[in-house]
Design a protein around this nucleic acid. Structure first.
Lengths: 228, 228
DNA sequence: ATAATAGTGTCTCTTAGACAATATTTC
DNA sequence: GAAATATTGTCTAAGAGACACTATTAT
């Protein structure tokens, strides 16, 4: 076997959630150079016995105490320019995770300085390394997948209303959707939503039916994203 | 900086083309263990000064003498299980390339044993490493992207007819499309096709208008893949 | 009763799919 | 002219978008 250039391989996470009506991403504040004081995406080295998905799920659990079974976790892409980290040659395999709003702020792995930041308030040059690009790619991916997949439910609690789901679309797409047409759409696609039988109560207006995610893995025909 | 486990990083290619009415993929025959005698996807180590895209394009040029400007080249995903190569820990960043039918068989880099094989004839266990999975993922990606992108033209010569383009869809999707509805669809989406003014000649039937790829980067509304 | 939110029905327009009809070439 | 392929047109049905209307709760 010929000689090969050695790389470090990390798994970095773009973890989205919705808090206070805003799309937020999990970031940690870097304590060391390079980029000390900047925000960075959480992540870490892939360990010798792990495959890439396992490394990403381990990081996700460490940071949020939520595993891929609760959240949604998928590979986003790899980033490996020669100068992205001045210390060594490193390739990052980025993952996209969508999680519901967490009851506790953020669990404490070794990164107790992790926090949720609204995506719209994160300036690109406040992020370390090439993490602004990774974040942008993750946002594009999440927006696109809402169109043709039942993924929006990953942002919701296990039981949710049609309005909850609509708000996810509106926040991620930064748009407004007609509640009536949206309702007709999501309830007419077979297997997309499954009624639990329960209803909400104690809020203003007519109580809403509760649903959970159905079996469908694809939303067909797709939900159309309004032109803006 | 703490110690990190060293990886080898390779860029592997899923290169599709259409030959003799069949979807074909570029494979090389392995001469050494492991998997001596098996087919494998072309690829190689990412070099110290290269980013991932550059490595993929270099490999593509070495194997086909076509660059990403002529063909289409995009990152597919990364594969890095701990046991995928018995010799060392290696992460492969896989790329998907779509190229037109080449005038010469396959150019001679160091891999003169490269050849085009019909995808349908490649048995999964005839491929080395986890390349059967990478190939399957590449096929899924290519099929999906034909729906909403102008990518089918990447399989065609610079100038092509509507029927040429339709045959790409039919071959990649392994389906039949109505020539009249297809014609109406692709010619009605603005920016998808650009007439060159020329026509075909010397074939049977009415000569067809020639087109080249238009400026559009998205096909909207999408081309619907028939249910089978 | 009023306000607020949930859910249903109706109309119109676009577009996909089926397929008839016409156009232009080779043999 | 016959056969083959290209291109246009016509009809129908499904679905999206606009929006009136009904339903059920809290105050």
């Amino acid at each position: 076997m010929p000689e090969y250039p050695p790389f470090a391989v990390t798994a970095d996470l773009v973890v989205f959630t919705i808090r206070d009506g805003e799309l937020c991403v999990l970031v940690i504040c870097r304590g060391e150079e390079p980029f000390a004081g900047s925000w960075a995406l959480p992540g870490g080295f892939v360990r010798p016995g792990e495959n890439l998905d396992e490394a990403a799920e381990r990081e996700l659990i460490e940071e949020t105490s939520l595993g891929g079974a609760v959240a949604h976790l998928e590979q986003l892409g790899s980033y490996g320019g020669p100068d992205r980290d001045p210390r060594m040659r490193v390739v990052t395999v980025a993952y996209l995770a969508l999680v519901p709003e967490l009851p506790v702020p953020v669990a404490g792995g070794d990164a107790s300085d992790a926090s949720w930041r609204p995506v719209r308030e994160l300036k690109p040059d406040s992020l370390a390394f090439d993490h602004a690009r990774i974040l942008a790619d993750g946002l594009d991916r999440a927006r696109a997948k809402l169109e043709y997949s039942p993924l929006a439910a990953a942002f919701c609690q296990p039981e949710f209303t049609v309005a909850d789901l609509r708000r996810v679309y509106e926040i991620v797409w930064d748009t407004e959707l007609d509640p009536r047409n949206f309702h007709r759409k999501v309830t007419s696609v077979p297997g997309f939503l499954e009624p639990t039988g329960g209803t909400t109560a104690g809020e203003r207006g007519r109580p809403a039916l509760l649903f959970r995610r159905g079996e469908a893995t694809l939303l067909h025909p797709a939900m159309l994203r309004p032109v803006r």
